[in-house]
């Protein structure tokens, strides 16, 4: 027996409208891709709004959203499903991918590059015009619900030889580039999400721009918008600005003492 899919639909819907400030034409692109049911790849550094964007689009398009965080020990069975032993019976349990395929949800595979390559190929038949998922263990070929959409995210700055997307996977997707928003917009986002004054948000964004310049000297990725929002939230709760920035921006970014020194100097300049 299988668990009925209907029960899932309710809890996978995005209930409240998430806040998202459009940077460019990504919304239009995504809608067009959804209309054509083309799989979408979101490319960009960590913390620049990819997941938030998917939630937002799921809300706008009124589709359920199922998110899978990919990692190195993710097996095909984790995505597709497995038999479980329940009360002396073997019961088939759908994985998140199969569930999404059945109910026509948006399936969002976050950081696909972390997963093993033999797991990643599972999505190949879903991401071309066949739109099928093969469940070997049940001998079932599942045809995707007409509303099913596959979305993946990918951080190209990772720079690991082992962890890179193969061409055979990459070329099945429509790609949308994400980057840290332009200064004015980023300040708006930080002010809203962090609930701080626009001036404070602008200082945080100016600080982040400077830290992002250190990137080539030893910091693999610059300060993400998410960290700025954390800092803003701390400031909002009464933590002094310098302390908030050190806790939310400086220490998470790096353990290198010299780089920390430089970041602290920049923080001290701004606040």
């Amino acid at each position: 027996m299988t668990i009925k899919p209907q029960a899932d639909i309710d809890y996978t819907h995005v209930k409240e409208k998430p806040y998202y400030l459009s940077a460019d034409t990504e919304e239009e692109l995504f809608r067009a891709a959804f209309d054509a049911r083309l799989p979408v790849m979101l490319k960009g550094p960590t913390g620049c709004g990819k997941t938030r964007f998917v939630e937002y689009m799921a809300y706008c398009l009124k589709r359920p959203l199922i998110t899978v965080a990919c990692h190195e020990d993710l097996f095909a069975s984790d995505l597709i499903g497995r038999y479980l032993l329940k009360n002396d019976e073997t019961v088939w349990m759908d994985g998140p991918l199969s569930r999404a395929v059945r109910i026509g949800a948006i399936c969002y595979l976050d950081e696909i590059v972390e997963a093993r390559k033999d797991t990643t190929v599972v999505i190949h038949p879903l991401s071309d015009n066949r739109r099928i998922l093969t469940i070997d263990k049940r001998g079932e070929i599942l045809t995707a619900h007409p509303d099913f959409l596959l979305v993946i995210s990918y951080n190209p700055g990772y720079q690991s030889v082992l962890k890179d997307l193969k061409q055979s996977t990459r070329q099945r997707f429509v790609a949308i580039d994400f980057d840290y928003p332009q200064e004015q917009k980023e300040a708006e986002i930080v002010a809203r999400e962090g609930r701080v004054t626009p001036e404070t948000a602008q200082q945080l964004v100016a600080l982040a721009c400077k830290i992002r310049r250190i990137r080539e000297q030893g910091l693999t990725e610059g300060a993400s918008t998410r960290l700025l929002i954390y800092a803003a939230q701390l400031i909002n709760r009464g933590v002094p600005e310098r302390e908030s920035c050190k806790a939310a921006i400086c220490r998470p970014l790096t353990d290198d003492q010299r780089l920390q020194e430089t970041i602290v100097e920049l923080i001290d300049d701004h606040f």
């Binding site: 310049r213 430089t262 100097e265």
Partner: peptide, 13 residues
């Protein structure tokens, strides 16, 4: 110098 350089690069790019 090393520390001043890092700051300089970050501030001006």
């Amino acid at each position: 110098q090393p520390r001043l350089n890092r700051y300089l690069r970050a501030r001006t790019g």
